[in-house]
Design a binder for these strands. Sequence first.
RNA 1: GGAGGGAUGGCUGAGUGGUUGAAAGCGGCGGUCUUGAAAACCGUUGUUGCUUCACGGCAACCGAGGGUUCGAAUCCUUCUCCCUCCGCCA
Length: 423
Amino acid sequence: MLDIKFIRENKERVKTSIKNRGVDFPLDRLLSNDEKKRKVLTELETLRHKSNISSKEIGGLKQTGKDTKKEMAAMKDVSNRIKKMEDEQTVLNKDIDALMLMVPNITHESTPVGRDNTFNKEIKTWGAERKPKFSFPPRSHLEIAKNLGLINFSASAKMTGGGFSLFTGIGARLERALINFMLDLHTKKHGYKEISPPLLANRQSMITCGQLPKLEEDMYKLKDEDYFLIPTAEVPLTNIHAKEILEACDLPLYYTACTPCFRREAGAYGKETKGLIRVHQFDKVELMKYVKPGTSYDELEKLLSDAEDVLQMLEVPYRVVALSTGDISFASSKCYDIEAWAGSQNAYLEVSSCSNFEDFQARRGLIRYREEGKVRYVHTLNGSGLALPRIVVALLENNQKEDGSVTIPKALQPYMDGMEVIK
RNA sequence: GGAGGGAUGGCUGAGUGGUUGAAAGCGGCGGUCUUGAAAACCGUUGUUGCUUCACGGCAACCGAGGGUUCGAAUCCUUCUCCCUCCGCCA
């Protein structure tokens, strides 16, 4: 959420930002309602002031046993007018509140301007020389996993449905090894605190992060309660300090959590529905930071490099892309995607989005801190570090040998009881 | 699932219809005292909105919403959360 005052005073900037994102938003309606609201509020407060004074008067008169009929009749009138204005205010507030939740964040000046992902900007590549050159026709991760008995898609389809995975044996072990490897890296080397949160979150938590009101369709919702299956650990992590005032000396706070992520992927039918690339449930290690405003862009770079570290240690080639205004999410000001190279896809796959939300989420969730007596909103950032299934795709495809075996990167071997090759 | 109890400022906790935004204590901050610290003493100490060039002024907020009343922290009502006990279960 943006500050209404900021919107009022920077109308053109907000307008441009909305336009650059290629979305529609009734900014004029918001501003005119806001103006009306303030007018009503001023009148309302004048009336309340009158009522407060006269109420005290009546109290005083009553105590001395005097007659208050006249005063009470006048108060009744004022009180009715107040009620009327309050109703008016409620209607305005409802509309304003709903609109305020729909205003996208202002994109940072370094975010490339453009209407869609073709305007994204490649920032860097790493390990291009490590991209595998196959002397044989490479198999897809699906084939490899099937041949080595790592994943059983027909079992998951039978018990649940399409778009789910069931890891078996060494496959399941590989998942667990990756999770432990990443969590160890982030907690021990990068200084994040490990969290194991609920996997269901309520409506307000979803609003805080910006998943709601816009993306309700994309989430799994419980029938009997107003709870959602979390689409990312960003939701619980960002809500840890919702409605709190933190102390400046406690910042920055770094959290990490590995959780399953549930996504309906509505509208994505037909797109990469086979295999591990797009599934309804996947594990992801998430990184999340609460920081002071002035530091958030430096913190974003650090967050990015913490996520990159995973790929470097796993020796997976990747590139980093700065998302354009048309591709960036509703809540973020700036976002880097990390894309891992997958050898037989012959393409980069998104494995992480690292975003700075500035105070957009903090405003929605009332996440603040106190410094020198002043209360301010924190800046929140998050990024995957990393999403599991696509890492598995990259590892299987990049490290496959002609005989169908797959080598395990050195950094991961201790987590696999020293196993060097899956065969 | 059943039965009770509760939710007040950073914390503990008083307050059952009328100058109560709220006693008291703790904590925090400032000061006096001290070589320094502690203790003691004095003062100060919530958030948000509107308005003002500014000093300031006004309003709202005692878990959330709705109601009663001239007037609600205080009465009624719905909801949420927490605690205790019982039951069930991993």
